[in-house]
Amino acid sequence: MQQSAGDLLLTIPPRRPARKAEASTQRTHGLARVLSKRGLCSRSQAETLVRDGRVRVDGKLIRDPESRTHPAARIAIDDTAAGEVARRYLMLNKPRGLVTTANDERGRETVYALFADAGLPWIAPVGRLDKASEGLLLFSNDSEWAAAISAPESQLDKTYHVQIDRLPDPDLLARIQVGVRDGGELLAAKSATELRRGEKNAWLEIVLDEGRNRQIRRLLAALDVSVLRLVRVAIGSLRLGALGKGEWRVLDEDEVRALARPTEQVRR
C-alpha cells in the first residue's frame, strides 16, 4: 500500500549546525547550493528564489545565487527561517505514461501526482525514466546522496526487464553487450540475458552500469530491435519487489546506505 508521510518516513537526522568556533573554518559555498544541500529545494529553484529577492543571509538580502555562504549561516526565505530539513528517501514504482518532472510545459501528468496529499517536503527524482518506461524510480531531498548514486564512478548497476518485438539469438545478446556507436557515444550493456519467450516476442534482462539518455532504446533501435515494454526492476541491491504500480514506500536506513556506497556514506 502507498504510505503517507508523517511518522512512517525514514528520518536521517540532519547534521547539527556548526558552532561559532567552527563556522569560521568551514568551507563556503554558493548560496543556491547551500539551500539545495539543506534539502529545501532544487539548485535551480534556489537560484530563482535568490534572484527574486526572497532570501536573506544573516539578515542581509542577497540577490546573487553564487554569493559565498557558510553552511551554518542564518538563512530566511520570505522572512521565514530556512533551516536544514529532515532527509527523505523514497522509491516509486513508476507507471507508464507519466513524465519524470515537477512541471511539464505540455501539460502532461507527472510522477508528482502520485505523491499528492502525502505531506512530503520538496523531493527530487534521482535519475529519470522516460514517459514510456516503468519501474523503480528514487526520490530524495538529499542532494549529496543523489549525486553519489548518479556519479559515473559509482558504477551502480541498474537492471531492466525489456520486452522486444522479436525472438533473440546468442548473436543479438552478444551484440547488445559489445555495443554500438550512436551520436558519438558507445552504447553497451554490462549484460544481456533472455528471461522468457513467446511465439513472436521475448523478455530480456539487461543490466547497465552507466546511465546515458534512453540508452537501452537507442541501443536496441540501432540493432533493428523495437522495445515493447521497458521496466527498471533494480538499482544496485535495491529491487522493485512486490511494490504495486503507482505505489511508493520509504527506504530503510540499510537500503539508503547500500545505495550510497562506495562513493558516499549516509551522514549521521
Results as ranks from 00 to 15, higher is better:
A46I: 06
A146D: 02
S67H: 15
T11G: 11
D209R: 15
L204D: 02
D254Q: 13
R257V: 04
S191A: 10
S237D: 14
R229L: 05
R68D: 14
K190D: 10
E205V: 13
E264K: 05
A242C: 11
L90F: 07
Q265K: 08
P13H: 06
K131T: 13
R27M: 14
G246D: 05
V50K: 00
H70T: 08
L223K: 04
R166I: 08
L187V: 10
P170R: 02
V256T: 03
A151P: 10
P262W: 09
A72T: 08
A86Q: 09
R74H: 00
W203E: 00
E264W: 07
T193H: 06
V207S: 04
R27K: 11
L208G: 01
A76W: 00
F139D: 06
L240C: 04
A46Y: 05
I176K: 03
S67L: 15
I77S: 00
H70P: 04
A21S: 14
R267H: 07
A202L: 03
E153Y: 11
L138R: 07
S133Y: 00
P17A: 11
T11K: 14
E247L: 11
P71N: 04
N201A: 07
L129Y: 05
V126I: 07
V225E: 08
D64F: 13
L136F: 10
E253S: 07
R56H: 01
A5M: 11
M1A: 15
L90M: 06
V225Y: 03
L208K: 01
I77M: 00
R175M: 11
R196V: 11
I164Y: 03
S150E: 15
